[in-house]
């Protein structure tokens, strides 16, 4: 199990690295699709069919929106070069060096916390359910749903779903506000 997942994850990482270094934006999007659909297969292997279905839908929608955004625009890559030339004299690009340094510092920062977290984690597959034990035992009679994930989302954790709906509504309002081309017309004086 762990070996299969590792192979899939290496495949996803290769796709991710290619997406970041691709010359053309369209091929970058396609490689982004490799990572998204690889995640779907990982979910199926991890016995999470609901997540797999939702991830397929979300990934497809995101790809379609992104392709629609870049289709009638320039697709040329805008990469920052390490050496910039000004009047023929090469300079080292200070902004690029600063960005890479930031990445290194943040990597060390996250590595510290990852190390601390990995000490307390059980090895893959040795998990013991604590909170979910009650959910699994009582879900059928309390919620009437055969699917435990549905029972948890809509019943035991209903307030989380309410917050999710709020965020979705806010995002839709934001998208509509930003995309609206004309503002409200200013009132003409004297009317």
């Amino acid at each position: 199990m762990e070996i299969t997942l590792s192979i899939l994850l290496v495949f996803m990482i290769v796709g991710a690295v290619y997406a970041l270094f691709a010359k053309d934006l369209l091929s970058a999007l396609i490689s982004c699709g490799i990572v998204g659909y690889g995640l779907v297969i990982c979910f199926l292997l991890l016995k999470a069919p609901d997540l797999a279905i939702v991830q397929i839908v979300v990934e497809t929608i995101t790809l379609v929106i992104m392709v629609a955004v870049i289709l009638d625009s320039t697709r040329k890559d805008l990469k920052e070069n390490i050496v910039i030339r000004e009047k023929g004299i090469p300079f080292i690009n200070a902004r690029y060096v600063f960005n890479v340094l930031t990445v290194v510092v943040l990597t060390l920062f996250f590595l510290f916390f990852f190390n601390q977290a990995i000490d307390r984690l059980e090895p893959l597959g040795q998990h013991v359910t604590r909170m979910a034990t009650g959910y699994i035992e009582n879900a059928a009679e309390k919620t009437g749903s055969a699917n435990l994930v549905t029972g948890i989302i809509f019943d035991f954790r209903g307030y989380d779903t309410l917050g999710e709906a709020t965020i979705l509504f806010t995002a839709v309002m934001g998208v509509l506000t930003i995309l609206r081309l004309k503002g409200r017309k200013e009132q003409v004086n004297g009317e």
């Binding site: 997540l51 994930v149 979705l168 995002a171």
Partner: peptide
């Protein structure tokens, strides 16, 4: 398998779609 992380991740995926659209 533990259904609790799956339910939370389901919520997170949908919110991720909304922020990406924004």
């Amino acid at each position: 398998v533990d259904p609790l992380p799956q339910a939370m991740v389901l919520t997170a995926i949908v919110i991720g779609l909304a922020t990406k659209a924004m």
